[in-house]
């Protein structure tokens, strides 16, 4: 075990960095997609609601690995060979980020929709009755309350997405699992290598949960 750590330690840590980078990009765009689609699904407008419904169901109905192959291989092929645009090429990081953003975004949208709907309609009515416009009421009154109830589910989704980065090893992105595979191929020490990888994921996720608890505690409404 020690020999792996001394010889490949830096490599694995760098790979973890890549994993985190990919997760960060994915989550960042997932939050944006989730917020937009989530809000669309509570609007009165039927087209907005319809779009949100189709998007969420489409993404939820396709396995992440299929989405990854489709975006990394399928989309450039479609552009170059069928549309004859030529030169369209996605790096593994770009394709990976898009996959995670779409996948996590769809789940986030559902979390955000449920969060908004969990806020009593009286809150919106009270804000409107004071003359605040719809979006302003959403922004100042409904969303802050919704976000508080959403935090645990969002953290859960973050953790799932962080672990899902490992699936993107299939498109050749040099994240932790992909790198570990190479280490095993060189050393044949699969027990030690995968053990180390598991512990690395565990540590990062425990830290993330720790941070989440702090955020949750900070968001309690009490006079201080």
């Amino acid at each position: 075990m020690l020999s792996i750590l001394t010889k490949y330690g830096t490599l694995l840590v760098t790979a973890m960095g890549q994993t985190l980078l990919l997760a960060l990009y994915g989550l960042l765009f997932a939050c944006i997609i989730g917020l937009i689609v989530g809000i669309m699904s509570v609007l009165r407008n039927r087209f907005c609601r319809g779009f949100a419904l189709v998007f969420v169901n489409l993404i939820r109905g396709v396995p992440l690995i299929v989405l990854a192959y489709f975006i990394f291989f399928g989309v450039p092929y479609f552009c170059n060979t069928i549309l004859k645009i030529g030169g369209v090429k996605l790096t593994a990081l770009e394709a990976g980020s898009v996959c995670l953003a779409l996948n996590c975004g769809a789940y986030m949208a559902e979390i955000i929709r449920a969060g908004i709907q969990s806020v009593d309609v009286g809150q919106m009515e009270a804000a409107r009755s004071l003359g605040l416009p719809y979006w302003r009421s959403m922004q100042r009154v409904v969303l802050p309350q919704a976000i508080r109830t959403m935090i645990p589910s969002i953290i859960n989704q973050f953790i799932i997405t962080l672990k899902d980065t490992s699936i993107l090893s299939v498109i050749g992105f040099p994240e932790l699992v992909n790198t570990a595979k190479n280490v095993v191929a060189n050393t044949f020490m699969s027990f030690q290598t995968w053990g180390i990888v598991a512990i690395m994921y565990l540590i990062v996720i425990l830290l993330l949960q720790r941070a989440a608890k702090t955020v949750e505690r900070r968001l309690k409404y009490e006079s201080r």
Partner: peptide, 20 residues
């Protein structure tokens, strides 16, 4: 509508104070 509501105050059965 918003301008009207500024001039017409409303008090609800369930208070609806902003919890946040």
């Amino acid at each position: 509508m918003n301008r009207l509501r500024e001039r017409v105050g409303m008090v609800f059965q369930h208070f609806n104070l902003f919890n946040n």
